[in-house]
Lab assay of single mutants.
Amino acid sequence: GIPATNLSRVAGLEKQLAIELKVKQGAENMIQTYSNGSTKDRKLLLTAQQMLQDSKTKIDIIRMQLRRALQ
């Protein structure tokens, strides 16, 4: 079985993952909103794209940590 310490770690990672998935969803929504907007929305679009990139990276890292914890 999986050690108890790993189980609480997994629960924490799953919570983090859920949050990051919401951030990713929000960033994707912002990108959709701003991509057909005016030029003043360009900065917001770039910010949203950066957020999305960061979020995807975090999600990958969390998933990797989850896999390790579940081994």
Rank of each mutant, 00 (worst) to 15 (best):
G1C: 15
G1A: 10
G1S: 11
G1F: 09
G1P: 10
G1W: 09
G1K: 13
I2P: 08
I2S: 10
I2T: 10
I2R: 08
I2C: 15
I2W: 14
P3K: 06
P3R: 04
A4K: 13
A4R: 07
A4F: 01
A4T: 10
A4M: 04
A4Y: 01
T5H: 14
T5G: 12
T5P: 13
T5C: 15
T5W: 10
T5N: 13
N6D: 10
L7Q: 08
L7D: 11
L7M: 12
L7V: 12
L7T: 09
S8K: 09
S8C: 15
S8M: 07
S8Q: 12
S8E: 14
S8A: 13
S8F: 04
S8N: 09
S8T: 09
R9I: 14
R9V: 12
R9P: 05
R9K: 11
R9M: 11
V10E: 01
V10M: 04
V10G: 03
V10R: 04
V10W: 02
A11M: 07
A11C: 15
A11L: 10
A11R: 11
A11Y: 07
G12S: 14
G12W: 15
L13F: 03
L13C: 03
L13N: 00
E14N: 09
E14G: 04
E14W: 15
K15I: 08
K15H: 07
K15F: 07
Q16I: 08
Q16E: 07
Q16N: 04
Q16T: 03
L17V: 01
L17D: 00
L17P: 00
L17E: 00
L17N: 00
A18V: 06
A18P: 00
A18I: 07
A18K: 08
A18M: 10
A18S: 06
I19H: 12
I19W: 08
I19F: 11
I19T: 07
E20V: 07
E20D: 01
E20A: 08
E20S: 03
L21T: 03
L21D: 01
L21I: 07
L21Y: 06
L21A: 02
L21R: 03
K22I: 08
K22Q: 08
V23Q: 06
V23W: 03
V23G: 02
V23E: 03
V23F: 10
V23S: 04
V23I: 12
V23M: 05
V23T: 06
K24E: 02
K24F: 09
K24R: 07
K24H: 06
Q25M: 08
Q25L: 08
G26C: 15
G26T: 15
G26P: 00
G26V: 15
A27R: 02
A27I: 15
A27D: 00
A27T: 03
E28R: 05
E28Y: 06
E28V: 07
N29A: 13
N29G: 06
M30T: 03
M30Q: 04
M30Y: 03
M30D: 10
M30L: 12
M30C: 09
M30P: 00
M30N: 03
I31E: 01
I31N: 01
Q32Y: 10
Q32P: 01
Q32I: 11
Q32D: 08
Q32S: 11
T33A: 14
T33C: 15
T33K: 15
Y34H: 05
Y34F: 07
Y34M: 07
Y34V: 04
Y34N: 02
Y34E: 02
Y34K: 02
S35D: 07
S35T: 12
S35N: 11
N36D: 08
N36Q: 11
N36I: 06
N36F: 07
N36H: 11
N36S: 14
N36C: 15
G37C: 13
G37H: 04
G37K: 06
G37I: 04
S38H: 08
S38D: 13
S38F: 08
S38M: 08
S38E: 13
T39L: 08
T39S: 10
T39Q: 12
T39Y: 09
T39H: 08
T39G: 09
T39M: 09
T39F: 08
T39K: 09
K40C: 14
K40M: 09
K40R: 07
K40Q: 12
K40I: 10
K40E: 11
K40A: 13
K40G: 08
K40T: 10
D41L: 03
D41T: 03
D41C: 08
D41W: 05
R42H: 13
R42E: 15
R42V: 13
K43N: 11
K43W: 07
K43I: 11
K43E: 12
K43Q: 11
K43M: 09
L44Y: 05
L44A: 07
L44W: 04
L45V: 04
L45I: 03
L45H: 02
L45C: 05
L45N: 01
L45D: 01
L45S: 01
L45R: 02
L45Y: 04
L45A: 02
L45K: 02
L46A: 11
L46I: 12
L46H: 08
L46W: 06
T47K: 14
T47R: 14
A48P: 00
A48G: 02
A48D: 00
A48C: 03
A48T: 02
A48Y: 09
Q49L: 14
Q49C: 15
Q49R: 12
Q49W: 14
Q49H: 07
Q49A: 04
Q49T: 06
Q50E: 06
Q50A: 10
Q50M: 08
Q50L: 09
M51D: 03
M51V: 07
M51R: 05
L52D: 01
L52K: 02
L52Q: 01
L52S: 01
L52G: 01
L52F: 04
Q53M: 09
Q53V: 09
Q53S: 09
Q53G: 03
Q53L: 07
Q53W: 05
Q53T: 08
D54F: 05
D54S: 08
D54Q: 06
D54E: 12
D54H: 06
S55N: 01
S55K: 01
S55V: 13
S55Y: 01
S55L: 03
S55E: 00
K56A: 05
K56P: 00
K56Q: 12
K56C: 13
K56S: 07
K56V: 10
K56W: 04
K56H: 04
K56G: 02
T57V: 10
T57P: 01
T57F: 07
T57A: 12
K58I: 04
K58C: 06
K58M: 05
K58E: 02
K58Q: 05
K58D: 01
K58S: 03
I59V: 03
I59W: 01
I59M: 02
I59E: 01
I59D: 00
D60M: 14
D60E: 13
D60G: 11
I61N: 09
I61D: 09
I61P: 00
I61E: 10
I61Q: 09
I62W: 01
R63H: 05
R63T: 05
M64A: 11
M64Y: 07
M64N: 08
Q65S: 03
Q65V: 03
Q65N: 05
Q65I: 05
Q65T: 03
Q65H: 06
Q65M: 12
Q65D: 04
L66K: 01
L66D: 00
L66C: 02
L66M: 03
R67N: 05
R67T: 07
R67E: 06
R68C: 14
R68W: 12
R68H: 10
R68A: 13
R68I: 14
R68V: 13
A69C: 07
A69S: 04
L70Y: 09
L70F: 05
L70S: 05
L70G: 05
L70H: 04
L70N: 04
Q71R: 09
Q71N: 08
